[in-house]
Design a protein around this nucleic acid. Structure first.
Lengths: 205, 205
DNA sequence: GTCTATAACTCGATAGAC
DNA sequence: GTCTATCGAGTTATAGAC
């Protein structure tokens, strides 16, 4: 008999979808089990039947988020393009990726800040060989005299900052720079190409 | 009679200090009135006597945070230095300012994201003429042919991103880039000069 | 597996004595 | 103005019927 004594995987999937949506938007503390249950079209008791506790459900979502996004980033970075083309390709793809997961950066960064020790393991497990190729590419470009002598961590942090922050801090940006929703969307769209050119000009010899 | 029927301003001050510390670290939802009371050396009932509700206490802290930091930023930007010197001066001062308020960016951005409409008023009230001079400086440098034709919003967002993100996302950065606490602190220290040079090189004609 | 009902608990808020 | 004691709302979690 198929599925005998087995949880309904369709239901489990629906729960995970709803949980992701609500945890990402509201964080661990802001999320309500009732709201997740309503969104998934089941009742609260079922959530506990499938995931025992709010913490366990949260952990599943958090790990899933990291496990899904890190390999995608890795793939974007492990192409065989020359450095400048790689930067152009990465920035465009990464910002597009973030547009489809606008709550993810804030969610991850906020939860990590609240609980740095516990969650660092999950990140470390999933980042293997993510940046190694980019590191080698940068090193090579330095040796070839194509770029200035910039430290890898500085280079990487600058790319990440320029891609993530305007999305993470959407309402901060729109308020401080007096943008409408529409202007903001166009602004992000332009960044898909502008950020790469900004970085390339900054490091080019 | 001095202080007759008047709240003890010393106590009020202690409450605000403790509330700021705990709200900034844990956010509205993570903060506990009991913890704030303990930290201030009083009991919960007194918090309500002085501030009526958690929400009102939070609002006081949030408004205070914005009101304190925005004029400081404005002052850093309204110096009479030429553009490149202004960028150098601003980046160094701004990162130093953030080092003294490491929880503030995450606090503000997170709370705004959770409640964009309500809080945008406070920001708009306090940002008056903050960026106008920088805007004029950039415009002038463009017309003088000193810099490339970069849009102001892009320029401003890039500076802000490069200054704030590595501090806001401390534990994300240290984990992904495998830095120790000490390496991170040195990294931020270096950024006080490196970020400005990065930006200047990116916009210089 | 799924549901209803409720236990167990946390936390903001208040009453009332001093 | 300050404290102790307690209320009551909101939430996670579980018991138990089907």
């Amino acid at each position: 008999m198929v599925n005998k004594n087995k949880k309904n995987s369709q239901t489990e999937k629906r729960i995970l979808e709803s949980a992701r949506k609500i945890f990402h938007q509201k964080g661990f503390l802001g999320a309500r089990m009732q709201e997740i249950a309503d969104d998934a079209g089941i009742n609260k008791a079922m959530l506990h039947y499938y995931f025992r506790s709010k913490q366990k459900l949260f952990d599943a979502i958090f790990v899933e988020g990291i496990k899904k996004i890190f390999p995608q980033i890795k793939e974007l970075l492990n192409t065989d393009l020359p450095l400048f083309e790689k930067i152009r390709f990465f920035v465009k793809s990464y910002i597009t990726l973030l547009q489809d997961n606008i709550y993810l950066p804030g969610f991850v960064i906020n939860e990590i800040n609240q609980n740095p020790k516990l969650l660092s393991e999950i990140i470390n497990k999933n980042k293997s060989f993510m940046l190694e190729k980019l590191y080698a590419d940068l090193q090579e470009a330095k040796e070839n005299g194509e770029i200035i002598n910039i430290e890898f961590n500085t280079f990487a942090a600058n790319i990440i900052s320029l891609c993530i922050f305007p999305i993470l801090a959407k309402y901060f940006i729109t308020n401080v720079l007096s943008m409408s929703e529409e202007e903001y969307n166009e602004f992000i769209e332009r960044r898909k190409t502008e950020v790469a050119e900004f970085i390339i000009k900054a490091i080019k010899k």
